[in-house]
């Protein structure tokens, strides 16, 4: 795999709505496109447009290959100018892709239990993680428990995939319309006695509020946790320094890492708690 990803033109195969304002874009790419690891991402430009000006980063939801091509699936939420344009893509349209990029999740290794904590579309890289774990040696015996949260039942996404891949799947909604009535981190916290270090590892992706709450839990319990972060990006390959995330440092001088190149997956322990 090339370190800085590669530029390829992809052909849209489908772009189906899976929940209100949530879609899965299926893209066909040439076989030369590198194998993406769970947690890695691609920069996508929907054609030769200047508005929106910048490409957008998306975590890999699923990726597979047959002889002639690579099939890449991106799960996304329609939130702004870029994703509105993306939602208008039709079968046969072309997109420009740069990827796969960044540092993904570490494979399960010696872990016996993996805990996935997802908020909203943050489920995407975790589905990819579970799927890849099931395909590799030790991952087949791995006990995977997934906690998935959303505002309301209608926008819970990725559950069908996780049901097939996980041993246990638990759901939380803010309005109680499905599963636990509350936050996904609280739902996970209630099950903590089932997960002890070092045999259990946590993989997470979701909004900042979820990540902050999860940090408090895993730090208290000494659980090893990797989290996939999101930040506005321009280049995706580590040169613009736009996607800085503050990390813990020894001195008063703040230190930053790049979400695109040093991440997007980080050990939770290195991230500075920013209470802004």
């Amino acid at each position: 795999m090339k370190e800085g990803g590669q530029i390829e033109m992809g052909i849209v195969r489908s772009n189906d709505e899976v929940a209100p304002d949530h879609r899965i874009l299926a893209i066909e790419l040439p076989p030369s496109f590198g194998d993406g690891q769970p947690g890695q991402f691609v920069m996508l430009r929907p054609g030769e447009c200047r508005d929106p000006f910048l490409p957008r980063p998306f975590s890999i939801y699923t990726m597979d290959r047959d002889g002639e091509s690579v099939h890449l699936y991106l799960l996304y939420r329609v939130v702004g100018k870029g994703t509105v344009l993306m939602a208008s893509l039709r079968r046969g349209d072309t997109v420009m892709l740069l990827g796969p990029l960044g540092r993904g999740f570490d494979p399960p290794g010696e872990a016996e239990k993996a805990v996935l904590v997802a908020g909203g579309v943050g489920v995407a890289p975790l589905v990819c993680y579970a799927e890849r774990a099931r395909k590799t040696g030790s991952g087949r015996a791995l006990e995977i428990t997934a906690y998935v949260g959303a505002r309301t039942e209608g926008i819970l996404v990725g559950l069908d995939r996780l049901e097939a891949l996980c041993d246990v799947l638990k759901v939380a909604t803010d309005d109680g319309s499905r599963g636990y009535n509350g936050t996904v981190t609280e739902l996970f916290r209630r099950d903590l006695d089932k997960f002890r270090p070092p045999g259990s590892v946590v993989k997470a992706c979701g909004p900042k509020g979820m990540t902050d709450a999860l940090r408090d839990i895993v730090e208290r319990e000494g659980l090893y946790c990797q989290v996939s972060l999101e930040e506005r990006m321009a280049c995706g390959i580590g040169v613009c320094l736009g996607c800085a995330v503050r990390v813990k440092g020894d001195d008063a001088e703040p230190a930053y890492l790049r979400v695109c190149k040093d991440g997007p997956v980080f050990d939770m322990g290195v991230i500075y708690r920013d209470d802004r």
Binding site: R50, P52, F53, A234, G242, C243, A244, R246
Partner: peptide, 13 residues
Amino acid sequence: AGNRPPRIMETSA
């Protein structure tokens, strides 16, 4: 170390 984030914002063109 550079400035505190956010550090970039897209604009028209």
